[in-house]
Structure formats: structure tokens, C-alpha cells
Design a protein around this nucleic acid. Structure first.
Lengths: 415, 415
DNA sequence: CCCATTTTTTCGAGCTTCGAAAAAAAGAAT
DNA sequence: ATTCTTTTTTTCGAAGCTCGAAAAAATGGG
């Protein structure tokens, strides 16, 4: 709370709240919106007719689930899918996918591209992003926003990619480049944060204020929701769980340092250990899912080096989670990505390691959910981030021109 | 944003904002409040006259720093010190202190008690807290709130102390006990979080949205400000930096586990190592400041075991900070407590360890501030927490009766 | 065909904020 | 001493928003 509330601000918030309620609930009636928001029926009626007139919302006849009840039937409301479209991009190792999404969150079109991220120049990566957007949006009326998810570290402001394992270039300014090309707001965010956003959207019962999304794959990524907000640090996107130190001066990590969690739990680390290589052996960029499956099968069969490799991976993850829990308290954990295919091997060892830590005091209460495929989460997280951003920034204030409003000067009040 | 804003809510927020502005600024005029809050002069005038009439604020003649300027002179405003008082308690090893603070944050009275926390019964500790409050408030008109800071882990709701190194008892319900005895709201919070609150209050330029307060003493404590809010977990107060795992299966910690950061960096760990004892030796509860000073002096003289002990402590702290930075991004760090007396020895080694971690990439940019005495911070943090709570909850809504207002039912909207 | 029931809209009342103008309070100028 | 200038503060009417009550709308039941 840093600046005073004026009248237009009140309307803006209540409009955004109504839009949010409609987006979340399944075709609610005005009465239901009133119940959800705590606003009066009169207010909902007024806001709803504004939104309908502006083409943001529409009436969808009687709701299907209209059980022959007495009285005037409820009118189901839904967001107008044609109110806007947004583009979601997802850049990962050798892959760039673009999705066009309507204002209801439905996918209109998808395009996937293969490209050699490790060898492309900085400008070629930027160009690839621009042309992917141009292609997906081709011929259709203007989209209002771009949400860009990258496998790597982004800056806290969501402007650029600072570092990524998929390319040798750093500080690639996707945000400004795309904004210059298309003239719409662009957010650049870490893919694991998008996974966290999607989890919250899908299951707010379980994933609400504080939770952790771990991506187990070639490397180890994390998305962190704290106090109901996606945590992005002051400079970078933070959340580098994989690069917490597990063993000082330990195994060689892909990032060039030693002893990181990832250097024990990433695909390359498991592969390296299972094949009897040195822990200082140079990490391999991309290990196929089939190969990891084979290692997991070996580990399930008996107590050989493969089993030992998964055991060390689980220990690193478990102790890491324990340290994280010590800092931020036990919270629901979602494990996503190809690495979860071996979760049956990992879980007991993760729990054993966790139980040894201060953060794991109540380890038996912690439950893990797993999903092998992270892509739908990333895409949905991007879409919801972009759309709820629109709800607030574009459609929240209404379309009346000249709202204006003063701004406080320097020296903001800290409450 | 989870519930609609009504008219009374708008006024409530703007009132609270005005109070916050007056509390923070040094006797501002109405014009200055308008500038700080972004609200119009008319609104400030109306709110100010309400607050003055209600006895929350008062006019303080012309501000002293009234430089003979043309025009009608500004009227300085200040909070009425008699509007309320709050009691701050601070329980630590063998010590319980109580402070009575007026609505302006000035200390009215202080009482310190010695007590043997390790041997007292659960009920005796509760009784001590109650009688400390009774004594400090004796004869004076009613205080409106109690803020209780404890050295230990509290629950996230701020109701009780879950665990503490200063007593064998756990789950001591100070909150309900004090509320039952005095009929005012009570918050129970971790002492390091209060240090963080005080830092933010004293220097919001440096300590605003994300920063870390580390307490170096017998143990290692942490207060964590994230996204501008004190982070308290879902169950406990979290922030157990000292119990992140530094070396799996490493030195014995006071908490009974092995390899915690504290088992290398707490006073007992340094003492143990410097005296050539085993890392599995049982930790000593309380090591005098003088003894630690002597060890530091020895370490400064040469490269003996004392030096090695401080080196290991610094490494544990540095790597811990690195892991923390990997998770939440580099942020300002404040080091508080008796352990900072040896910070000249610790700092280079902390930086060296930090520089090896992913979170320490820009370690040279990180600056540490140190203060040897944590007590004033804890007290001020308690006071400001309690007073700003009053600003909002008691004085924000105004004193007009029957404000009422509906509440949204279940199924809150998640935006 | 009328009544009961539920949803939605309408309408006036009550707050709140805002901008403009007026009032207040001082120094500067004559 | 009086008038002008400048700055702060208050006053007042206008506009916007939400709310509760009442009215209107839409449907099933008898």
C-alpha cells in the first residue's frame, strides 16, 4: 500500500475482479459473481453491462447445467474469446514453439520449430523469435501481448534472458526486440515460473500461497510461489535451486562450478555416475529420454552403479529441498519433467534425505505430485500470465478515454 | 486481490495511508502528505480533521524548520502519543525484557528480568510473560496490543512458540495466554524477523523489498523480507538459515542433526573447533562474549586452530548465503549480533566462499552492514510492527460505529 | 391463468474524492 | 501602517461509485 486510492481506481479493481471471477469460474451468473466477489448485485449488474457493451464479456444463454428450477433462470456469462489474443513463445534446447491463444485461454494455433540453439548467433535467436511470432499471428487481427518463456535465467523485470544452458550467448534482449517488432508488451520469464503459475491456476486448493515447482530434466529448475506471488528476485529470475551447493568442492556442474545439486541430480550427472565416469567429467548437453529410461530400468533391477547414481541424485534433491524448507517452510512440491519417470526410484531416497534435515522435520506430511511432461504447464502458465495481465492492465480500467489521474511524486510512503 | 472494494474500504485505506505517512515523515504538513500519498489536498484536509477530532493526530504548531518563507506557514502534524500504547516483550536466553511504547514509538518505560529459561517449567515461562506485562503496564491506562519476540521458531500465524534453544519445552502458547490475561491482540514472532522489520523501518532505501538479516551469536538466525513482506512460512516462522545443510553428515548441531550451517558458524561451533574438540562434541549452551573475543584475538594473531575455526565458520556462512542467493537472488545483507565482532576475520572468507557459488556470481557487488547489538533492533521491530498494525486495524477504519460490511463467501477469487 | 420464486435491473441515497475557488496567514513592498 | 504577493488550508459543488430496496423480468407449479 503505497499510494492513495481514488474513485477510478476502485472501479478499476472491481472490474478486474469481476473479469477474474468470470475467467476462473465456469460461466458464472451475475448472482454467482456477486457471491464470489462480495460486491452487491447492483454493482455487478453495472459492471457486467459495461463489460458486455465493451465486447469483453458476453452472455452465453442459459448455463447447460440449468436444473429445471423455479424462478428466473440464471444467465451464464463468459469472456468474449474475440476480445483479444496473445502469443506465447517457449524457447528450450533446440526448440522454439509458438502458440496463439484467445481471450478465453483456448489455443487457436500452434507452431513448433526445430533450431540449433547451441550454434545459432545471438541475432539469429532474436530473429527466430520474431519470425515465429510473425508466422503464428499471420493474417489474424492484432494480438495484444507476448509471453515468452525461456529455459534459463531471466532478469527480474522480465525484459531479457540473462543466461541459459541452451546457448553460449548471454543477455539476449528478447523483450525490447519483440516490442520493437510488434509494438505490444512483452514479458520474458523463466519456464519453471510459468510451470508454477500453471499449477496455481489448475489447482489453487493445493497450490495457493507457498509452493515449489521442480523441473527435473537435463538440469534442475525451480519455480517459487511465495506469499501468493511468483518470486522473481531483484536482478535475475532467481530460483536456481539446481545451483545451491550440495557438497562444497564436489562434482563438476554444467555451470562450471562444483558441488551444485544439479551436478548430482541432472540427467548428465546420473548418466555420468551410472557409467562409472569421474564426477569431474565434462557434462553432456542432451541425454535422450530413452537412455535415461534404460538407466532407470537398470536401477530398478538391482544395486549396481545405476542404482547408486539415482541414489546420489535423490540425496542431493532431498537435502536441497530440506534446506529450502528450512528457509521457507514445508510447502507442497510439484515435480515436473522427464526426470519424474524415475520418481519411483527417487522418492524413498529423497524422503530419507529430507528427513535428516531441519526443514524435513515433518517430511512424512510432505506430498509430491509428479507430471512427466512440462510443456503443457509452461504453455498454460504463459497464457494465463498474459491473459490475467490483460485483464488488469487493458480491460481493468475500462475503455473510457481520458481517465488520467495524478501520481504521487518521489518519497513513497512505506507502510 | 481477492475481494471487492467498497466505499468504506477506500476511506479506510486512505486513512491508514495518511497515518503511515505521518508516522514515517518527520512532522509533515498537510501539503506534504498530499504529495507523499498522491491524494488531493481536499481529501487530506478532510481525513486530517477527522483524525485530529478522534485524537489520533494533532497539530504541532509551526514546524521548527520553518525557514522564513513567504506565504501561510505550514502546520506540522504528528501522531498523538497518547492515542495508544503497546507492550513489546523480548524473550531470549535467560532474559525477558518488557518495553512500553507510546503511539509515536517513543519508549515510555523498560524493565529487564533475569530468569533461568533452561530450567523453568512451561507454565513458569507463561507466568513470567504475563507478570512482565502486568508490571510494565501497571497503573497506566490500557495498552492496545502486545508484540512478543522470541529467540526460536514460532508458528506462521504468530500465536505460539514452536521450538526454541532456550527451553526444553515446545509449543508454548504465549499468544492465547496473553490474550486471555489482557484481552488485547498478541503477536508472537521470531526475533530475527523483528530485526528485519526494524531495518526496513530505519533504512528503507537500502532495505525495502528483498533483503536478509542474519543474527550471528550462539546460533545463527535469519529474518527474510521478500517482495516487501516479512516472510513467514505456512507453518513455522521459517527462516532457519542456520539449519540449512552445509555438509551432509557433518558436524553435530545444537538441534541434534548433523552438518547444519550453525554447527560450523555458531559460537559453540567456533569454540569447539578452536579448542581442538571433536566436531561431534556436544554443543555448549552459552559462551560468553569475552571468550569469543579472546578467540577472535587469537585468530587475528596467527594461523592457529582459532583462525581455522573462524575460517570454517565463514565458509559455512558464505556458502549458505550463496545457496540463498541462488534461490532468491542477491540482496542486501545485514549482519547483527555479537558474532559480528569478529567480522573483520570472517568477511574475506565469506566473500571467497560466496564467490564460488552460483548465487555469488556478483559477490563483489554485495555489501554487508554489521551491528554488534541486536537488542535495539528487536525492540524497535516489535514496536513498529505493533504500531503499524494499530494504524491499520484500529485507527484505519475510523471510530464511527456500525461500519459493518458484507463478506464474500467461500470460493475466493484467485487473480 | 395466476401465484411463488429466483434473477436481474433500476433508482435514489450516501460516501468519497476531486478541482476550483475562497479563506487564512504570513512576508515583502510601498 | 497598509497593500500586494505567496503559500497553505479549508470550503463547496460536481462527479463517480457502491449499496439497499424496490421493481421488473422470466420461469415453474398449481
Amino acid at each position: 500500500m503505497t499510494t492513495g486510492i481514488r474513485h477510478d481506481e476502485m472501479r478499476k479493481r472491481n472490474r478486474a475482479l469481476v473479469i477474474a471471477a468470470v475467467r476462473r469460474a465456469d460461466q458464472p451468473s451475475r448472482t454467482e459473481i456477486a457471491r464470489l466477489t462480495g460486491l452487491s448485485h447492483s454493482t455487478i449488474s453495472a459492471i457486467a453491462s459495461d463489460l458486455i457493451e465493451e465486447g469483453i464479456m458476453r452472455e452465453i444463454g442459459q448455463g447447460e447445467a440449468a436444473p429445471a428450477r423455479r424462478g428466473r433462470p440464471q444467465v451464464a456469462l463468459g469472456l468474449d474469446p474475440e476480445a483479444a489474443t496473445v502469443v506465447c513463445l517457449h524457447l528450450s534446447f533446440n526448440s522454439l514453439s509458438a502458440v496463439l491463444v484467445d481471450y478465453c485461454g483456448r489455443v487457436i494455433d500452434t507452431k513448433a520449430h526445430r533450431l540449433s540453439t547451441l550454434t545459432l548467433s545471438r541475432q539469429a535467436l532474436l530473429d527466430a523469435a520474431v519470425s515465429a511470432v510473425r508466422e503464428i499471428a499471420c493474417g489474424r487481427e492484432g494480438f495484444l501481448r507476448i509471453a515468452f518463456a525461456v529455459q534459463g535465467i531471466t532478469d527480474a523485470a522480465g525484459r531479457q534472458m540473462l543466461w541459459s544452458p541452451i546457448t553460449p550467448h548471454s543477455d539476449i534482449a528478447f523483450g525490447p526486440e519483440l516490442e520493437a517488432a510488434f509494438g505490444v508488451p512483452v514479458t520474458v520469464q523463466n519456464d519453471c515460473n510459468m510451470i508454477a503459475a500453471a499449477l496455481r491456476w489448475r489447482n489453487p486448493e493445493r497450490y495457493r500461497d507457498n509452493f515449489i515447482a521442480l523441473l527435473l530434466s537435463q538440469g534442475i529448475g525451480m519455480g517459487l510461489m511465495l506469499n501468493g506471488q511468483l518470486f522473481t528476485g531483484t536482478h535475475s529470475s532467481a530460483g536456481e535451486f539446481g545451483h545451491m551447493i550440495h557438497r562444497p568442492d564436489g562434482a563438476l556442474c554444467r555451470c562450471g562450478r562444483r558441488g551444485c545439486i544439479e551436478a548430482y541430480a541432472g540427467n548428465y550427472a546420473i548418466w555420468r555416475k551410472a557409467h562409472g565416469k569421474s564426477a569431474m567429467e565434462k557434462p553432456i548437453a542432451d541425454i535422450k529420454a530413452g537412455e535415461m529410461e534404460a538407466l532407470a530400468a537398470m536401477a530398478r533391477r538391482g544395486d549396481g552403479p545405476a542404482r547408486q547414481a539415482f541414489r546420489e541424485a535423490a540425496e542431493a534433491i532431498g537435502i536441497g529441498i530440506g534446506s529450502l524448507f528450512a528457509l521457507i517452510d514445508p510447502a507442497p512440491v510439484a515435480m515436473v519433467g522427464q526426470g519424474t519417470a524415475a520418481f519411483d526410484i527417487l522418492e524413498p531416497e529423497i524422503r530419507a534425505a529430507l528427513a535428516q534435515t531441519a526443514g524435513g522435520q515433518h517430511a512424512e506430511d510432505v506430498s509430491f505430485e509428479t507430471w512427466p511432461d512440462e510443456v503443457p504447464f509452461i504453455q498454460q502458465g504463459c497464457a494465463m500470465t498474459a491473459l490475467t495481465g490483460l485483464d488488469w492492465e487493458v480491460f481493468g480500467p475500462g475503455l473510457r478515454p481520458g481517465a488520467g489521474g495524478r501520481k504521487p511524486e518521489d518519497g513513497r510512503v512505506v507502510a
